[in-house]
Design a protein around this nucleic acid. Structure first.
Length: 874
RNA sequence: GGAAGCAUAGCUCAGCUGGUUAGAGCGUUCGGUUCACAUCCGAGAGGUCUUGGGUUCAAGUCCCAAUGUUUCCACCA
């Protein structure tokens, strides 16, 4: 069916329709074919908290390019989509929404709260999926998953049970990061550090029995209430004699010991450190080593406990003031120092973190980290770019046990059950849990806490494929092929997927991790809500189309590097789409052939061979760059080819043939259409909509472009010699344009062109090109041309004479040729110098030397031409 | 404190394992009513590739150091 394209490129008119067609034809759903290689990707599941932002847009554009590329290359491809429940982030949003209605979690109760959370997920989870679809992503929606769906939950329970039975999950008292606002523990990775102005308070602790005091310093004086020792370094001569003695804790009056511990450093502060095991991670360790008691001074909402009646119920900052005041009054305060320091804050709400001792569940990391380090070290898993493995190793080698319990409701509830009577602990993957104590028959209560959201995302590559069941998907598509994500979540997520996969599936989760950077604004700042500098991808799609958005994100993008995003980039992308649209419109308007055939070399004109050769070079570059994940480079190869070579040159060169009619016209039409069609295929992974829309209008083509074969370099359609010949014509046309421009000759003034060349074959039959593209009235090949009143243009393959006597300023002409001569001579002496260098000739590869010789020859020919031209001026 | 990235035209960036006279987009200047496209066509100006060493026949590219800048991790009694 022949289709004429509308005059203007208007993506909104067809993008939605095309996406529906792809879905209807189930083109995103693979048919498992074991004879084929598989290529699979699992989407980094977007949180259901928000909506699509430019980061998602980039991440998913890259994935879609890869998956479409591999699909067209004949791989059996699967892209699993889904969303993440994002426990703390979502819960915070829901709590916030409820707060506006005057409700709290407690008002609702767990069950009602969860109902509300699921309603949230319906609404916002669905919305983000719709937004992804607008981008054109070719995910298999029949396999859509959610981190909290039945299958993923089963996987989570199974893993928890297994790790528990292996002793890799344990419950214990540890110092954790506590957010007094969210009232939950958060992992180290969820703490943001921000610089704040604070103080260092120096406090004197009097020695028991008189004889002076020791001085300690702290940024958090209120923690004094929880002190159970003062530590000094065992090597510290200043304090050796005090070890084993006691001090009196000011304001509290408790006797606490002076202990020797290497945590105290000789050269820091006074060398004495107050030890608060319940409220500081280092002190906690000291407390363990020294068998110190634990004194809890702060409640869950960071208020002073009832143990200290004077301050009980005070907020930590209030208490800080009161305590400092009292210390001063009591003569304990030795000094106050201003200090800038990094303070840990909750990444969700920004509240200052309070380290607290607490009973939590942990994953023992060391045994899991080891194989995960190995897998990357022996390159079973590769990072692109490679340098990110350093990042990964560093984290993995120094990782501490992972606190996985969260005091939240929205998430996977911990499958641990405690007996109300005897305290027996049962961990089970059974979905019905455990209600009766196997030991005493008592009632069992499930742990109220939920798991860290990353606990379920860590299983994503295999839980989405059916694990722990042995499904066909798991068997065929696992391990997945490429994971595409930003460098900001390598530690959060990538590393956890790796050790999880290795431990539970005994296999890697993916073989390549493609890391991309952040999308920044035009000034290079992070896009953020508070700055209001975010660019909304949905607005861009509405205004410019999804293809333009994808192009703008993919172009210039190189692995691991941040990119700036600006309106100009999007406009450039839209202009490119428009250019393609119009080129296609032109080609289709002129087609009279019924079907596009593979070009027959015997029938081709030089310009046909030239464009086919250029196309082959482009295809080769696109293939090799995509294989290296150089998506930006691959795309710019297509851009340059399509705009500069196909549109600016080949379409123009082919116009005389097309309008000539007859056999030659049919051949030219076919080449025009063939190269267009193949270029559309190359471009399809990047710009799926416009390429599909144009493709569907090409004569004789059936089905969707997305399942056609991706073009690969083909030697039979490469014609280097003819291509080089046509290049001589192009160079000559360019040179004429330059000269005419310099002389200010308007294009409407035509003039005859005499070409004197050693390569007459190259210029044979090129008259119409010069007429159309170089304002020539006629062209004649000559052996010599003697008219003195002619402009002479010298290229390295020809001298062109144009009689434009009245336009010539002979002095200027002499000067110009003189300058050109100088240039050429400089080049010649450079090349000659190089070739005269014995070590260059003997050591450089032959190819390089030969190229240098050839260059020298060309320059010499050009020099001869310039000299001859100058001669005529004298 | 540890580590990594980046530094190329006015701006934003390409430049792969070292090999033509360093490229593109935007901006800028000049010219254009060429029947696909002004979201366009033709042409130009504009760069001592941050600095200093080194390796090499050959360095924007590799090594070392410095400076600037960004980021990650750790710590902060």
């Amino acid at each position: 069916m022949r289709k004429e394209l509308p005059k203007t490129y208007s993506p909104a008119d067809f993008e939605g329709r095309i996406y529906e067609q792809w879905c209807e034809k189930k083109l995103f759903t693979p048919t498992v074919d074991r004879k084929k290689l598989h290529y699979s990707i699992v989407i980094p599941p977007p949180n259901i908290t928000g909506q699509l932002h430019t980061g998602h847009a980039l991440d998913n554009t890259l994935q879609d390019i890869l998956i479409r590329y591999k699909r067209m290359k004949g791989f059996c491809t699967l892209w699993v989509p889904g969303t993440d429940h994002a426990s703390i982030a979502t819960e915070a949003k829901i709590v916030e929404e409820m707060r506006k209605e005057g409700l709290t979690k407690e008002d609702l109760g767990r069950e009602k709260f969860l109902e509300r959370a699921w309603a949230w997920r319906e609404k916002y989870g669905g919305r983000i999926i719709e937004q992804l679809k607008k981008m054109g992503v070719s995910c298999d929606w029949t396999r859509e998953r959610f981190t909290l769906d039945e299958g993923c939950s089963r996987a989570v329970r199974k893993v928890f049970e297994q790790l528990y039975s292996e002793g890799l999950i344990y419950r214990g008292e540890r110092i954790i990061n506590w957010c007094p606002h969210c009232k939950t523990s958060i992992s180290n990775a969820e703490v943001d550090y921000e610089e704040q102005n604070g103080h260092f308070w120096h406090i004197r602790y009097p020695l028991v029995g008189g004889g002076g005091y020791v001085e300690v310093a702290t940024t958090r004086p209120e923690t004094l209430l929880g002190d159970t020792a003062v530590a000094v370094n065992p090597e510290d001569e200043r304090y050796k004699h005090l070890i084993g003695q006691y001090v009196v804790l000011p304001l509290v009056g408790r006797r606490i010991p002076i202990v020797a511990d290497e945590h105290a450093q000789l050269d820091k502060g006074t060398g004495c450190v107050k030890i608060t095991p319940a409220h500081d991670p280092n002190d906690f360790e000291v407390g363990r080593r020294q068998h110190l008691p634990m004194e809890v001074a702060l409640t869950e909402d960071a208020k002073i406990t009832d143990n200290y009646p004077k301050y009980a119920g005070m907020d930590r900052y209030e208490a800080r003031k009161a305590i400092v005041k009292d210390l001063e009054a009591g003569g304990y305060l030795a000094g106050i120092e201003d200090l800038k320091h990094e303070v840990g804050t909750c990444y969700r709400c920004g509240t200052t973190i309070e380290p607290m001792v607490s009973l939590q569940w942990f994953v023992r990391m060391e045994p899991l980290a080891k194989p995960a380090i190995e897998a990357v070290r022996d390159e079973r898993i590769k990072f692109v770019p490679e340098r990110f493995d350093k990042n990964y190793f560093h984290w993995m080698e120094n990782t501490q046990d992972w606190c996985i319990s969260r005091q939240l409701w929205w998430g996977h509830r911990i499958p641990a059950f405690y007996c109300d009577d005897c305290g027996e602990v049962v961990v089970t993957a059974d979905e019905n849990g455990c209600t009766v104590c196997p030991k005493c028959g008592g009632h069992m209560t499930q742990d109220p806490d939920t798991l860290d959201t990353w606990f379920s995302s860590a299983l994503w590559p295999f839980s989405t494929l059916g694990w722990p069941d042995k499904t066909e998907d798991l068997d065929y598509f696992y391990p997945t092929s490429t994971l595409v994500t930003g460098y900001d979540i390598i530690t959060f997520w990538v590393s956890r997927m790796i050790f999880s996969a290795l431990h539970y599936t005994d296999n890697i989760p993916f073989d390549t991790v493609l890391i991309h950077g952040l999308v920044r604004d035009a000034q290079g700042r992070k896009m953020s809500k508070s700055l209001g500098n975010g660019i909304d991808p949905l607005e861009i799609i509405d205004k410019y189309g999804a293809d333009a958005l994808r192009f703008a994100l993919a172009t210039g993008n190189s692995p691991g590097n941040d990119m700036r995003f600006s309106d100009e980039k999007i406009e450039a992308a839209r202009n490119f789409a428009n250019k393609l649209w119009n080129a296609a419109r032109f080609v289709m308007m002129n087609l009279t052939i019924e079907k596009i055939e593979k070009p027959d070399p015997a029938a081709l004109a030089p310009e046909d061979k030239w464009i086919l050769t250029k196309f082959e070079e482009c295809a080769e570059s696109v293939n090799s760059n995509l294989d290296k994940y150089e998506i930006g480079v691959a795309l710019s190869a297509i851009y340059d080819f399509l705009w500069d070579e196909y549109c600016d040159w080949y379409i123009e060169l082919s116009k005389p043939s097309v309008s000539a009619g007859g056999e030659r016209s049919a051949v030219a039409q076919n080449v025009l259409a063939y190269v267009l069609r193949e270029t559309l295929k190359l471009l399809h992974p990047f710009m799926p909509f416009i390429t599909e829309e144009i493709y569907s209008g090409l004569p004789g083509e059936e089905g969707s472009i997305m399942v056609k074969t991706f073009p690969e370099a083909e030697a039979a359609l490469r014609f280097p010699a003819e291509s080089a010949d046509l290049q001589k014509v192009i160079d000559a046309i360019r040179a004429i344009r330059v000269r005419r421009n310099e002389m200010g000759v308007v294009p409407s003034r035509k003039a005859k062109v005499y070409i004197e060349t050693k390569y007459p074959a190259a210029f044979e039959g090129s008259s119409s090109f010069f007429e159309r593209l170089a304002s020539a009235s006629a062209v004649e090949l000559v052996n010599a041309y003697h008219d003195e009143g002619a402009v002479r243009i010298v290229t390295d393959s020809a001298t062109i004479h144009i009689p434009l006597a009245d336009m010539i300023d002979f002095e200027a002409e002499k000067k110009r040729l003189g300058a050109e001569l100088e240039n050429v001579e400089k080049e010649i002496s450079r090349a000659e110098g190089k070739l005269a260098n014995e070590s260059f000739v003997s050591r450089a590869p032959e190819k390089v030397v030969a190229a240098e010789r050839e260059k020298l020859e060309k320059q010499k020919e050009k020099k001869a031409g310039i000299l001859a031209a100058l001669e005529k001026l004298n």
